[in-house]
Every structure is written in C-alpha cells, then in structure tokens.
Amino acid sequence: MALFSKENRQAFTNPLNLDNPIAVQVLGICSALAVTSQLKPAIVMGLSVTVITAFSNVIISLIRKTIPNRIRIIIQLVVVAALVTIVSNILKAYVYDVSVQLSVYVGLIITNCILMGRLEAFAMQNGPWPSFLDGVGNGLGYAIVLIVVGFVRELLGFGTIFGFQVVPDSWLMDNGGLYLHNGMMTMPAMALILVACFIWAHRAYNKDIE
C-alpha cells in the first residue's frame, strides 16, 4: 500500500471534519468541558491527546496479532496508561503552570472514550502506519473543537487571548465603562452550550451527516 494512498488520507482527514470525534461521534465531551476555559490549556490538552492517540494506536497495531482477544482491553489500558504517564511527566517538566491548570484531566486521558474507541475500532484491524494517521487525525479533530471553544470562552470570560489582554481595562464597569466579563463563560455549563453551537454550525454546513 502506498504511503499516502486514498484510504490512508481518509484515515487522517475524516476525523478532522466528517467523522469528528466531538462534533459527530460526541466522544470525549467531559474533558472538552473541563479544560477549555482558557486557550493555552486547551491547546496543550489537544496536543497531549493527539500524541497519546497516535502512539497508542501504533503500539497496539504492532502487537495486535499477539493480543489475546479476551484480555485486549487491559492490554490497551496498560499501553495508554504508560503513554499518559510519560506525557504527564513531560508536561510537569516543561510547562508546569499548564499542567497544574489541567490537574487531573491529563491523567483522565486514560479514560477518554476517543482513545479506547480508536484502539478498538481501528488499531486492532489495521497496520501501524494507517493507525498512526488515524490517531493523529482524531487527536487533531478533538483539538480543533477544544481550540474553538477555548478561544470563545477565554475571550468572553476573561477578555484575553493566550493570556494577552484584548478587552481594554477602560471598557470595564469598574473603570466607568459599560462592559463586564461574562462569568458564565468560565463555567463548564457554558462550554456545553458552545460545543452544542459548534455541532449545530457543523451540521448546518455538512448537511449529509445523518
């Protein structure tokens, strides 16, 4: 099979749009609500999930023929847990403040439905290279939604983007202006509504999904 055959390209591009893990399969919602109150943790989380999905897909795909069928979930979990521990430690070492913000949600990537879903549905049946592309595609598809939601929430909830102030202080009510940051944007409830809006817009654009 060619390196970038049609199937391989589809394994990568489908999860970005028509088979998006959050917008279409509605998986991994929990972490999408928890970590998106600001843009920076959202991006770090998206990248972590991408890396872990990609490499766990590769590893499982390599050993898929030797995994006994009855204990495959446990083996998948061990692989994912090992990768999550590595990523978690790397985050602690290099971006400590973000890893504090993400707190338990890095560890909870183990239970992310996207991972188990891809391992079961794709890596168990396909070779390492398509599995890698599929993992990267799904991770990035997840990251796109996180970034969109994180962008809106940080802008409206804190008036900043990447921590840089966008809404000037003089607009605020305390300084005689008329503007106030929307406190609800910093709560997970609003993230759920934003994800719903994303899905709404996505389906309005791609009419052939269901």
Partner: peptide
C-alpha cells in the same frame, strides 16, 4: 439565571 451567573456583580 443567565444574568445572575454571568454578571453576578450587577
């Protein structure tokens, strides 16, 4: 409720 949770100070 939206006002209450979004703009608690007012």
């Amino acid at each position: 409720a939206f006002l209450f949770f979004s703009y608690p100070s007012t």
